[in-house]
Design a protein around this nucleic acid. Structure first.
Ligand SMILES: [Mn+2]
Ligand SMILES: [Mn+2]
Ligand SMILES: [Zn+2]
Ligand SMILES: [Zn+2]
Lengths: 150, 150
DNA sequence: AACCTAAATGATAATTATTTTCATTTAGAT
DNA sequence: ATCTAAATGAAAATAATTATCATTTAGGTT
């Protein structure tokens, strides 16, 4: 008897990948959180429903999803990576991050994002020309101390 | 017989640290390169003049220099950190980076930097207020493909 | 519904970056 | 020259990620 596949499963099929419980679950986890989860954190959530799924599969799945553009890999300089659904596949809009260097909290902001994007487009275009560099994405973060840590 | 200490050595003393061959050499290496070296790369340059100095010392020294604000630790998402003299202690001005995701090349740019800084100050101030977040620094990079890799 | 096979997985080992430990050495003050 | 806290090196430990390989499974075919 074949497993049921949900919305994500069909999307995976559309990309030519198989729909598996681990893959669907990982996507559901990413969809239902505001946090920026590390592989280990995703793994521990996965384990609740599917304890047989291994950390290796989490890594492999995240890799695949990043390559498909479904998920974004973020590196905030902690020595480990974090993941979120990419702009296009999430309900959130384009945003950047505030990172608390005391407690590690990561805040999404999209205030002034239109001005930001406009500004970034402008310099991306200038830089692209000057350095003959094909810019495909940008990463912006502000480090400091959050509310609770000040 | 006491070792001679150079410019960097005196600066270290000023900070209350001892002037040691490894520390001076690491600072000289950082000063004389345009690259963004990893600890391993710094270690291999250190080894040419002082093969007895270990990788651990390189890590420890970099940590110390980052805490002093003399050196900046940069994370371009490669799973390892890279270092450069910080703005204040280098002859270079404030800049951001273009990162080639094919060959790994990192380009410093400081074009439009005044506009950038002005813009950043503006949003930093607004974000700081809105999220009650004390912003202390920003990190901006553009990913893409360089000249040679296109 | 049973069958087939490439794709996916899990367990394990291997790698890589970084940190810790601890016994020894050394910078720099006295 | 002497002294001692700070710095160091060698080695082991930790943490994140990747590779290997034998086994399982998704999903197309009969
Ligand atoms: Mn985010
Ligand atoms: Mn730089
Ligand atoms: Zn905080
Ligand atoms: Zn390149």
């Amino acid at each position: 008897m074949k497993r049921e596949c949900g919305r994500w499963g069909y999307r995976l099929r559309g990309f030519g990948y198989k729909c598996t419980p681990g893959r669907e679950l990982i996507l559901e986890i990413l969809e239902s959180t505001d946090e920026h989860l590390s592989p280990e954190e995703i793994y521990s959530k996965v384990s609740i429903e599917h304890p047989e799924i291994g950390l290796t599969t989490v890594y492999r799945t995240l890799d695949m999803l990043v390559n498909l553009g479904v998920v974004s890999k973020l590196d905030f300089g902690e020595g480990k990576s974090r993941y979120e659904l990419s702009e296009h596949h999430s309900h959130k809009k384009h945003h950047h991050h505030l990172v608390c260097n005391k407690c590690g909290k990561i805040i999404d902001y999209s205030d002034f994002i239109n001005e930001e994007i406009e500004f970034l487009n402008k310099i991306e275009s200038k830089l692209g020309k000057k350095y003959n560099f094909k810019i495909s994405s940008h990463f912006i973060k502000f480090d400091g101390m959050c509310n609770d840590c000040i």
